[in-house]
Simulated assay, not measured.
Amino acid sequence: MMHRSLLYFVQAQYRANPPPSLAQDAGWEAFRDGSPANAMRRAMHRMSRRWLKAFDKGAEDLAKYFVDRAAGATDVQLKDILKKAGFTVEFRTTYDVNNAMQAAIGENVGLIKSIASQHLTEVEGLVMRSMQDGRDLATLTQELTHRYQLTSRRASFIARDQANKMTSVINRARQQELGITQARWCHSHGGKQPRKSHVEASQSDGGKGKVYDIAKGCLIDGEYIWPGQLPNCRCTAQSIIPGMED
């Protein structure tokens, strides 16, 4: 939606205030304010303010939605594990879990806003360079479409990465409040380029997965980390319930 609006807006402004070389070719002798670049810059700033305001309003609701979904999925998964072990647990939003969720919401609000801010800044840069170089509208449109595709891929990566991190943090908080102190590292077998060390951790201990202290993290590549913490990590933690390993 933002891309279509931006494209329509930029095309309309570009036609109304073309670069000097295009304006001369079209027989234009004067500009509304004497400078097509200044007119475009002011128009871009007005449009950017409107979109940033819209993202400011919607960012927190969107972040809450993602965090709530991650928390719900985590609770269902952990309940299923406990049920198989003979335990029935009704999860509540405790202080630790709520704190983890609020921290995740805050981080996601910032990321959502940064995607919009960076995209708008890059769009303005493309438009102003196009004005300066006297490029035609078709070329500019292609560049804007390519920029949108790059932003979409970045947004998809951030959404996937944050979902993994949120699941990991909330799951860890749930495990600790239930008194579960250890877990096994499990590789998801997803992704085109899995980390070799993560696969090895999952295959250790006879293929059961490396055991680690939930509070401390798992020692991999010289540092203590948790599943889903690193970018593009889709690994998960398998809770170890004393007496129920077999």
Rank of each mutant, 00 (worst) to 15 (best):
M1E: 14
M2T: 10
L6W: 13
Q13G: 13
R15I: 14
D25C: 09
R32F: 15
S35N: 15
P36G: 12
A39G: 13
A43N: 08
H45E: 15
R46F: 15
S48C: 09
R49D: 15
R50V: 15
L52I: 08
L52W: 13
A54Y: 12
G58T: 12
A59C: 10
E60I: 08
A63D: 05
V67E: 01
R69S: 03
R69F: 07
A70Y: 03
A71F: 03
T74F: 09
D75I: 04
L82E: 03
K84G: 03
A85D: 07
T88K: 12
T88R: 10
F91Q: 07
T93F: 05
T93Q: 06
V97Q: 06
N98G: 05
N98S: 14
I105R: 00
I112M: 09
K113W: 10
S117C: 02
Q118H: 02
H119D: 01
T121F: 10
V127G: 00
V127C: 02
M131K: 11
Q132K: 11
D133L: 14
D133E: 14
D136F: 07
L137G: 04
L140I: 07
E143K: 01
R147D: 06
R147L: 02
R154M: 00
R160H: 10
D161H: 01
A163W: 06
A163F: 05
V169C: 05
V169I: 02
V169P: 02
R172V: 10
A173D: 06
L178R: 13
L178A: 09
G179P: 10
R184K: 13
G191L: 13
Q193S: 12
R195V: 09
E200K: 07
G209H: 02
K210D: 06
I214N: 07
G217V: 12
E223Y: 13
I225H: 04
W226R: 03
L230I: 11
N232S: 14
C233W: 15
T236F: 07
A237I: 04
S239A: 14
P242H: 08
P242W: 11
E245H: 06
